[in-house]
């Protein structure tokens, strides 16, 4: 399966949320990383058909999805950023309803609902009304509904928000298993989630793609620019204000280990370390400006996997 996004643009008034974006997705997990307001949710809504693009189109195996109708929506699984269900429905009722909406009937809908309840660990709470659920439980219910129809294209907007560490691990495993035969696109602020499960990362900023590639590849642009230095703990704060520090760890109260992103050796004795996605994220989204020299964008903003 191949999902091609071609020259996609969507504006809200004078604000361009998605700006001439082109890329192609095939089976696998794609992590969409970007700060708030970068246009991630808009891009996902465009992919789901919840928004119409101003320009460009989305093609599934070469055919525009707008022409495919139910054949496309039948393949979709979507978890919106602020998932909300009907508060007076029980979890079981809601999933049965969602299953029928997604094209399953009778026994198949019931079976799918039970299977997903079990998968997200909500079976014991299946007969509780959704309004009594915690944020994490609602999020798990949202994940469950997204998986009901065994989607070929799974789009998850902030799926791990509100999940505790145990649930996040369960979620990562679930998605990893899922991605063998489908396209999974997930957006998150939690960089470690992307690092663990994404085959490819899309770094998104101001409606445009800054980077698209495997985590190891895209972090390579920071090679030689990430440092670790040991400093006096009392001076760590002052240094942090001066340098771009991606992590600060106090050791025994006297010494602090700083992880610094810098073009040059930031302090005497600093040692170079392997950059991570978090470093890359911080580099772009804390700096307030795009470093064009580090970007490996193609001229037309298009990416092919």
């Amino acid at each position: 399966m191949q999902l091609q996004i071609q020259n996609l643009t969507r504006c809200y008034g004078t604000n361009t949320a998605v700006d001439h974006v082109s890329f192609t997705l095939t089976n696998g997990v794609y992590g969409l990383l970007g700060e708030n307001g970068a246009g991630k949710s808009t891009l996902m809504r465009l992919l789901c058909g919840l928004l119409r693009p101003d320009t460009g189109e989305i093609r599934l195996n070469g055919k525009a999805v707008s022409l495919r109708g139910e054949a496309y929506t039948g393949l979709l699984g979507y978890l919106p950023q602020n998932f909300s269900a009907y508060p007076d429905f029980t979890a079981r009722e809601y999933l049965r309803y969602a299953a029928v909406l997604k094209g399953l009937d009778g026994t198949a809908a019931k079976k799918a609902a039970e299977k997903r309840l079990k998968k997200v660990g909500l079976l014991p709470q299946a007969n509780r009304r959704i309004k009594t659920f915690s944020g994490g439980m609602r999020q798990r219910l949202g994940i469950a509904q997204a998986l009901l129809n065994d989607p070929g294209i799974l789009i998850l907007d902030e799926p791990t928000a509100g999940l505790d560490p145990k649930e996040r691990i369960r979620f990562r495993n679930l998605i990893s298993a899922w991605s063998r035969e489908s396209i999974v696109l997930l957006s998150t602020h939690i960089v470690s989630d992307v690092e663990f499960i994404a085959d490819e990362v899309i770094l998104f900023r101001a409606g445009q793609i800054l980077h698209f590639g495997k985590p190891g590849q895209i972090t390579a642009v920071l090679n030689g620019r990430v440092w670790e230095c040991r400093v006096d703990a009392a001076k760590a704060d002052a240094i942090s204000r001066r340098l771009k520090v991606s992590n600060l760890k106090n050791e025994d109260g006297k010494t602090a280990v700083l992880r610094v992103i810098s073009e040059e050796e930031p302090l005497p004795g600093a040692s170079g370390v392997t950059p991570t996605l978090e470093d890359l994220y911080l580099y772009y989204f804390e700096s307030g400006k795009t470093n064009a020299s580090l970007s490996d964008q193609t001229g037309n903003g298009g990416y092919e996997r």
């Binding site: 979709l76 919106p80 909406l101």
Partner: peptide, 15 residues
């Protein structure tokens, strides 16, 4: 303001 995202992305949601 919420549930429509699921309705409109479901196969039978618009029909």
């Amino acid at each position: 303001g919420g549930p429509e995202s699921i309705l409109l992305t479901a196969k039978r949601g618009r029909g």
